[in-house]
Simulated assay, not measured.
Amino acid sequence: MLRPLVAGDADALVEAINDFEVSRWLTHVPYPYTPSDADEFIHAIGPQMGALWAIDHGDTFCGVISIGKELGYWLAKSAWGKGFITEVGDAVVDAWFGNPDAADLKSSHFVENTRSAHALQKLGFVDIGGHVHHSIAQNADVPGRKMHLTRDRWQDRRRFRIETDRLILRELHPEDWRDLQPIGGHPRVAPMMMSCLSPWPEADVKAWIARARFRGRPGFTLAACTRDGKMIGAVGLGGKPLSTLWMIDPRESGQGYATEAVGAFFDACFALFDLGEVVSDHFVDNPASARVHEKIGFERIGGGMGRSRARLEPAPITRYRLTRSLRDAKK
């Protein structure tokens, strides 16, 4: 969650940033970092610093992100490796480019800060050359890399369209919730999905779509539509381990739409991303999904128990894996 940084955050700010493993990667932060440093920073927040927010996870302060002349951020060490910068960075970058007059974005990282390099790459930034910044915490000039994100690249990373003989797979948009709600919330669909309810509340559907937006990397869901634009389902990819989901309107069942959509989806994803292995599962009482898994090329790897928000109790599932070679063997 993003919120304004306030005076009451001073103690948490000191606790998080008064760690050399954090401050060494920042240019203007001293080490040790004192309460007076925190007070001075909080009271200096103004338009010249751009927009700046505290990053919270639940009730815990995790770090800071800002955007103005550059995109800047840092996280407490306890928050590393959890995808927080990718999540909040997407929101901040989207808000920035939501202003049609906003300029291209700059950022930077020290060469040895591979975590920050990876986070910026996931946000769409590209390396445009080297530079040297002075690190107050290290009391040294440190080599770094300059990063750049153009509006055109940002827009391109929000577009994903696949066409088949009968279908168009496209990005989900906020206004799609009305068409998606009766599909995911159908009493024959929701119990086969992990996160849907029947009925599926409007707020849940909108939040689901917001999480499913395409941002140029795995972790998205596409709308499956007929050639005349009618939404008949969705197919997606994301999570750790990397897994897939799909749903088809029961009123359109029996026409091969799931196999057509999922097959085209994975052909495109294997071409675009370095996926390695994708896992999947279905509830044992969903034989239609079993047939689709087999047609796509998924390899059965075992069973287990799974949960759905639309089921009262865990239920048996069958687990699968898919690689590029397994998919190619079915084409």
Rank of each mutant, 00 (worst) to 15 (best):
5 L>I: 15
8 G>P: 15
9 D>Y: 15
10 A>N: 15
11 D>N: 13
13 L>C: 05
14 V>T: 02
14 V>G: 02
17 I>E: 03
19 D>G: 06
20 F>V: 11
21 E>K: 10
23 S>Q: 08
27 T>C: 12
29 V>G: 08
29 V>R: 09
30 P>N: 06
43 H>K: 14
47 P>R: 12
48 Q>W: 14
50 G>C: 05
51 A>G: 10
54 A>E: 11
59 D>P: 12
61 F>M: 06
62 C>K: 03
62 C>L: 08
63 G>I: 00
63 G>H: 00
63 G>T: 01
66 S>Y: 08
67 I>T: 03
68 G>I: 03
69 K>R: 11
70 E>N: 07
72 G>K: 06
74 W>H: 06
77 K>S: 12
78 S>F: 13
78 S>W: 10
79 A>W: 01
79 A>S: 01
80 W>M: 03
81 G>Y: 00
84 F>E: 02
87 E>P: 11
93 V>N: 03
99 N>P: 10
102 A>K: 11
102 A>E: 09
106 K>C: 14
113 N>D: 02
117 A>N: 14
117 A>D: 13
119 A>N: 09
121 Q>D: 11
122 K>C: 09
124 G>Y: 01
127 D>H: 06
129 G>Q: 08
134 H>N: 07
137 A>M: 06
142 V>F: 10
143 P>Y: 09
145 R>M: 13
147 M>D: 08
148 H>G: 06
154 W>V: 05
158 R>E: 09
158 R>K: 07
163 E>R: 15
164 T>E: 04
171 E>A: 12
178 R>V: 14
179 D>S: 06
179 D>A: 03
180 L>D: 00
181 Q>Y: 08
183 I>S: 05
184 G>F: 05
186 H>P: 03
188 R>T: 15
189 V>S: 01
192 M>L: 14
193 M>L: 12
195 S>P: 13
196 C>R: 08
202 E>Q: 12
203 A>C: 11
204 D>H: 07
209 I>T: 04
209 I>S: 04
211 R>P: 12
211 R>A: 14
215 R>S: 07
219 G>K: 01
220 F>K: 07
221 T>E: 09
223 A>V: 12
224 A>Q: 09
225 C>P: 04
225 C>T: 04
227 R>Y: 08
227 R>W: 09
230 K>Q: 14
234 A>V: 15
235 V>N: 03
238 G>L: 04
238 G>R: 03
239 G>Y: 08
242 L>Q: 12
242 L>K: 10
245 L>D: 04
253 S>Y: 07
254 G>W: 02
260 E>Q: 02
260 E>K: 01
260 E>A: 01
261 A>I: 00
265 F>W: 04
266 F>W: 12
266 F>Q: 05
269 C>T: 06
276 G>V: 03
277 E>Y: 07
277 E>P: 08
278 V>D: 03
281 D>H: 05
284 V>I: 06
284 V>P: 04
295 K>F: 04
296 I>F: 00
296 I>Y: 00
298 F>E: 00
303 G>M: 13
303 G>I: 11
304 G>D: 14
307 R>E: 09
312 L>M: 13
315 A>F: 01
316 P>I: 01
320 Y>K: 10
325 S>T: 15
328 D>L: 14
